[in-house]
Design a protein around this nucleic acid. Structure first.
Length: 803
DNA sequence: CACCAGGGCGCG
DNA sequence: AAAGCGCGCCCTGGTG
């Protein structure tokens, strides 16, 4: 029963203890548990569904997450007793299941009745299910946006239970509650943006003058939702903020733009940005710089607020919307709804407001991050930002624009070949199983293999269905032809859909495909690659199969060669440096192959008999043990990949052997564990930090995971930073008519080199990457030699080793 | 038609 | 005692 006397009346009035509108009534102890609190109330908090405790004591938010919610409410100056607290679902779902959309729909009348009685001005929604109130889903996307529901203003945030599980959400949750509290008290957020629409020559001149005279200026583009190189690509408006709180918005190709020559206006703004002494700031500068360059304004921003945010805390969300609320304390705002037609069909006044906010907030964030980066204790981070990340971002801007050349003839013929082979496999499968099925469907396949053909179920998926993953089918292949054919089908169909079909579709008129590299896409500092945003299509060049049939479609156009420069065994070399293991260091000084040694041990072959594929698998074993793999997983690994049954004792001995060979690895692991336990973070040789708040978790498994990450991150991060440093140095050295960088895959750099200068550039690239100026740039040195393999050919993956 | 989670698998 | 790390895309099938 509700504690609040006013809610009691409500409880009697709208509650139906015999409700059978959805299946949830079957599992709930208390059916139709309505909310609790004052009626009416100024604000409501709406959660997902009653939990175990709530069901028992008949009170919403009674468990652990409820306590946490109360705590944070208190901290932001609100009190639970002023709030009416309820849930979108009124019955407790069976253990650990969120209510379905159908169930929520059935429950809606009760919630609506509550809202009508409580008459809240503000509603805080907590958790994804609660978003159902406003017919949305995707809480991490919509949190911190404001919505209306009837007369009430609605603010969604993450669920307190999510915060308790994942500390990364803590900042988000507190920010949103602080905002909510401000809204409840009717206080405005930080200074709003004063927007000036630039629509006449005098205003344009004033804007340019402000760009030229300000110490720092932020810019932000609104564009058509296309790739910048597409035919109908247009810059719609430019937002300029020369001073916090102020932004000029210049319409360019917006239909309401009144300029006679919009391109000339863009040039005027662009030239001011190019020639100003001011620091040019942007959020995700690579995007805006690329667009400007496409329209003949080659600018490279000096300061990217997104990169700064990521470098200072790799775990937080990097969107401008989030950072502005978290750091600047501005009021929440919803992304501009561009509708079907993109920025072009959005009213100029509306578009300008958003554009202005973005530019203004970017500038304000710049002043904040500049302060943070130059404060005591952040010297190494500042150096990384200035000497490594911003130059790398500049190089990537060009690399993304260049794209990778595709051999169209190979692409077309190989695609047809795949079609033919797929048809053959399909025919044979139909013959063997006696039916037509969708071979891509794990569900249909499981039915055929395990119900109809009665094969052994070796493994279950996370959800308890019989797994049809590769390792399982491989085991079944020994006795049946069908699983073997399925594996072939999967490989062929993945090659076709993920790679060849996509490449053909995304091929530009210059026979190139393009990707987007994210400098802020991973927690370790590696690049991620793929599409620009969720709705776009795009390719990931980091997962192109090594299979020559696929990889060999990418290459260099006639008159040029394709060069791949690869850091050899870079992560092991870095681990050798960190651990100072004498055996590892000696092996690298003698230039011996550690992966080959492991492959020899596992296959019991002579070194020269080891297949490249076997060496590649040994590589995974070395990395596995190096980064904390246990002997149990090793048994699975050996079975799935080598078809070798290893006993528990053998597996343990194999692992012991590894650590007996490299005696100092254990001490290094221990040091990393100690560091992360003491400081909740670790850092790489050149100062890139990985924050690991999970080390404070109550859950031992989670803590152990953080410890393994503490071992892995400084290795993976440094390897990647060496690549980024190479990228920026090489990019500055290369004249585009001789050589151009076209891509990078973690520890390798892909370059197109003109035929007649291949020798010169092979040599220069190798030398540059093997002799990076670590001492001069970061004041540190590596105690192991760095080795780079350069391969040159006409196509990717088909090159000959240089030198 | 849009969105989402899960399964599966490509890469380093 | 037990423990690899880091990513992104395609497809299916459920749901609204």
């Amino acid at each position: 029963m509700p504690l609040n006397p006013q809610a009691k009346a409500l409880w009697d009035q709208i509650r139906d203890p015999n409700c059978e509108a959805c299946p949830l009534h079957e599992s709930a102890q208390t059916v139709c548990l309505v909310g609790d609190g004052p009626v009416p109330a100024r604000y409501m908090v709406v959660g997902e569904a009653p939990g175990y405790r709530e069901d028992e004591v008949e009170k919403p938010f009674a468990g652990k997450s409820g306590q946490f919610l109360d705590e944070v409410l208190e901290q932001v100056g609100l009190s639970r007793k002023d709030a009416f607290i309820s849930n979108v679902a009124k019955c407790r779902p069976p253990a650990n299941r969120t209510p379905t959309r159908t169930e929520l729909k059935a429950c809606r009348p009760y919630l609506d009745a509550e809202i009508e009685a409580v008459k809240p001005e503000l509603i805080l929604l907590v958790g994804n299910a609660a978003l159902n109130l406003i017919k949305k889903s995707g809480i991490t996307k919509h949190r911190g946006e404001v919505f209306k529901y009837g007369d009430a203003t609605v603010l969604p945030t993450v669920h307190p239970a999510a915060v308790l599980r994942n500390p990364n959400y803590d900042a988000v949750f507190r920010t949103d509650l602080a905002t909510f509290s401000r809204m409840v008290r009717g206080e405005p957020g930080a200074t709003p943006t004063r927007t000036f629409l630039v629509r006449n020559p005098r205003a344009l001149t004033a804007t340019c003058r402000s760009i030229l005279t300000a110490p720092a200026v932020a810019y932000d583009l609104e564009t058509t939702g296309t790739e910048e190189y597409e035919e109908d690509a247009k810059i719609v408006t430019v937002g300029i903020s020369p001073k916090p709180g102020i932004a000029f918005v210049v319409p360019i190709h917006h239909p309401e733009s009144r300029w006679k020559d919009p391109d000339k206006v863009l040039r005027a703004i662009g030239h001011a940005l190019m020639f100003t002494k001011a620091k040019v700031i942007a959020h995700n500068a690579k995007f805006d710089d690329r667009w400007m360059t496409q329209f003949d304004i080659p600018i490279h921003s000096d300061f990217d607020t997104m990169i700064a945010a990521h470098l200072l805390d790799e775990n937080r969300f990097k969107s401008l919307k989030f950072l502005a609320q978290l750091i600047l304390g501005v009021d929440p705002w919803a992304d501009v709804d561009l509708g079907g037609g993109g920025a072009l069909t959005t009213a100029l006044s509306k578009l300008a407001r958003y554009n202005a906010k973005d530019a203004d907030y970017t500038l304000r964030l710049y002043y904040h991050f500049r302060e943070e980066l130059t404060s005591t204790g952040n010297e190494r981070t500042l150096r990384l930002f200035v000497k490594l990340l911003m130059p790398a971002s500049k190089a990537l801007t060009t690399i993304e624009r260049t794209g990778m050349w595709v051999d169209q003839e190979r692409l077309l013929t190989r695609r047809l070949e795949l079609d033919k082979r797929l048809a053959t496999v399909d025919e044979r499968l139909t013959e063997l199983t006696g039916q037509k099925a969708n071979w891509n469907s794990p569900q249909q396949l499981a039915k055929i293999l395990f119900s109809e053909m009665d094969m052994t179920v070796w493994e279950l998926t996370a959800k308890g269905a019989p797994s049809t993953r590769e390792a399982v089918l491989l085991r079944l292949s020994k006795e049946h032809e069908v699983p073997k054919l399925i594996l072939e089908w999967r490989s062929l169909s993945k090659n076709k859909s993920t790679y060849l079909d996509n490449w053909l579709e995304l091929l530009s008129s210059d026979s190139r495909i393009r990707t987007h590299y994210k400098l802020t896409g991973t927690v370790t500092g590696r690049l991620s690659s793929g599409k620009e945003h969720q709705k776009a299509r795009g390719i990931n060049v980091q997962q192109v199969p090594r299979d020559k049939f696929i990889r060999g479609i990418i290459g260099a156009p006639p008159g040029w060669k394709f060069l791949e420069a690869d850091f050899s065994q870079i992560e092991l070399r870095i681990a050798a440096h960190y651990s100072q293991d004498p055996t590892m260091i000696r092996l690298f000084q003698l230039d011996e192959d550690i992966h080959l040694a492991t492959a020899v041990k596992m296959t019991r072959k002579q070194p020269h008999q080891v297949e490249p594929e076997e060496r590649k698998k040994a590589k995974a074993v070395n990395f596995g043990f190096l980064f904390g793999m246990g002997w149990r997983k090793f048994i699975d690994y050996a079975r799935d990949n080598y078809d070798v049954e290893v006993s528990d004792i053998e597996a343990e001995r194999f692992r012991d052997d590894f650590f007996a060979t490299f005696t100092k690895l254990r001490a290094w692991h221990e040091r990393q564990r100690r560091l992360v336990r003491n400081y909740s973070k670790v850092q790489s040789l050149i100062g890139r930090v990985r924050h690991l708040p999970d080390i404070l978790s109550q859950d031992e498994e989670v803590r152990k995971e953080a410890e393994r990450q503490a071992i892995n991150s400084p290795v993976q991060g440094l390897a990647s930073d060496l690549m980024l440093l190479s990228l920026s140095i090489l990019h500055e050295q290369m004249p585009v008519d001789e050589a151009k960088i076209v891509g990078t895959v973690h520890d390798s750099i892909l370059v197109e080199v003109r035929d007649d200068v291949v020798d010169k550039w092979s040599k220069t690239i190798k030398h540059t990457m093997e002799n990076l100026p670590l001492k001069r740039t970061f004041g540190v040195e590596l105690t192991v030699p760095i080795k780079v393999d350069v391969k040159v050919g006409q196509h990717w993956g088909e090159g000959e080793l240089y030198g």
